[in-house]
């Protein structure tokens, strides 16, 4: 049997990581698998990827995927700032941040907001289960009011919707998905990788240990029954000619991505306009009112200047500048001193 290779002739095993220590059946492990699949199928060299995380169950996962990529498991809620620094050191790499709902919506909400505001060039995946797993199941700030975890009182606080927030902050790529919807999630993560700028992907990922009971709005069963996809998402990579892909029978829209790839969104019932902020917010709002989880690409806008672009940096990564670009010359020094003397 021939071994399958991707477009840069690598086996999938080049993209795998260590063994997961999360609970068996955890949604996060599904997302890790999708990240591996997406990176492999997109043909990105592993050394060109950097994986970043904060603290929490989700933030442990970079140990379980892309073992040949450098990664940094930082401190709680601060993954965005560390990624910002790393992205300035080397703007030519693909940064994938993995965070959780506690890491992003509570302790790290400030950094989440400002990373979006700066349009940091990264894929920001939130593995969102509504509870703090590592500290044994406390509600997080994204859990729906009234949702009830296993062995506990109903949650009495309203949720923060990270997608709404990202849209309002002007993020150019905002998507929501479900760890159980492998096809859609793969297409969205691939598209996020092809996007230039911040790509927020909020993935509902049930906590099988603390909140997978029927009374939880984020249990596997509940989300499966109440997921409302906006469209069917297909990713067409830039190296695979679009003509070879079957044209869908119904209505569809192609989103052109930065690296030449395409995200094809096939309309299911009503057409969702991804360039309309109000439509995106409405879709979330109405779904929320009905106890549904809307998924798909909620909002898209290309060509927003990224955090590194506004810096006007040299082409070579700052981490490998030659010495003469690190220090003014002696001639410049003499000139400076003359200026200071006045």
């Amino acid at each position: 049997m021939s071994i399958k290779l991707n477009v840069i002739n690598l086996e999938k095993s080049e993209y795998t990581g260590g063994k997961s220590s999360l609970c068996p059946g955890c949604g996060h492990d599904q997302i890790s698998k999708v990240i591996i699949q997406a990176a492999w199928e997109n043909g990105i060299p592993p050394e060109g990827i950097v994986k970043m995380s904060g603290i929490g169950c989700s933030s442990k996962t970079p140990a379980y995927f892309l073992g040949k990529s450098h990664g940094f498991n930082t401190v709680h809620g601060r993954m965005p700032s560390v990624t910002t620094g790393a992205a300035m050191a080397n703007k030519n790499l693909l940064y994938i941040g993995v965070s959780g709902d506690g890491d992003t919506a509570s302790i790290g909400i400030g950094q989440f907001i400002h990373a979006i505001r700066r349009n940091l060039n990264m894929v920001y995946i939130i593995e969102n289960n509504g509870v703090y797993g590592l500290t044994k199941g406390q509600y997080s700030a994204t859990m729906e009011r009234g949702s009830t975890k296993r062995k506990g009182q109903p949650n009495d606080q309203p949720p923060i919707d990270l997608c709404k927030m990202a849209i309002n902050l002007g993020c150019g790529f905002v998507a929501r998905s479900f760890s159980g919807s492998k096809k859609q999630l793969t297409a969205l993560i691939k598209a996020g990788m092809s996007h230039n700028g911040m790509a927020i992907i909020d993935v509902i990922s049930p906590c099988v240990t603390f909140a997978n009971n029927d009374e939880s709005y984020r249990s596997y069963g509940y989300v499966k029954d109440n997921e409302e996809p906006l469209h069917v998402a297909d990713y067409i990579p830039h190296f695979s000619p679009i003509a070879e892909v079957d044209i869908p029978e119904g209505e569809y829209k192609d989103i052109e991505l930065f690296d030449g790839s395409t995200l094809r969104l096939e309309t299911i019932s009503d057409h969702h306009d991804t360039s309309d902020v109000v439509a995106a917010l409405s879709a979330i709002h109405y779904a929320e009112q009905q106890g549904k989880h809307v998924t798909g690409l909620l909002y898209f806008e290309a060509d927003i200047p990224t955090a590194d672009e506004v810096q006007g940096l040299v082409d070579i990564p700052l981490s490998s500048l030659p010495a003469e670009l690190m220090r003014p010359s002696r001639a410049k020094h003499d000139e400076l001193i003359r200026k200071l003397i006045g």
């Binding site: 940094f72 601060r78 965005p80 910002t84 620094g85 400030g110």
Partner: peptide, 17 residues
């Protein structure tokens, strides 16, 4: 917190932050 986080990120990435 973010200021120093960026410095740590840059230092880790091989730049002088």
């Amino acid at each position: 917190l973010a200021a120093v986080g960026m410095v740590v990120g840059a230092g880790w990435g091989g730049a002088r932050g």
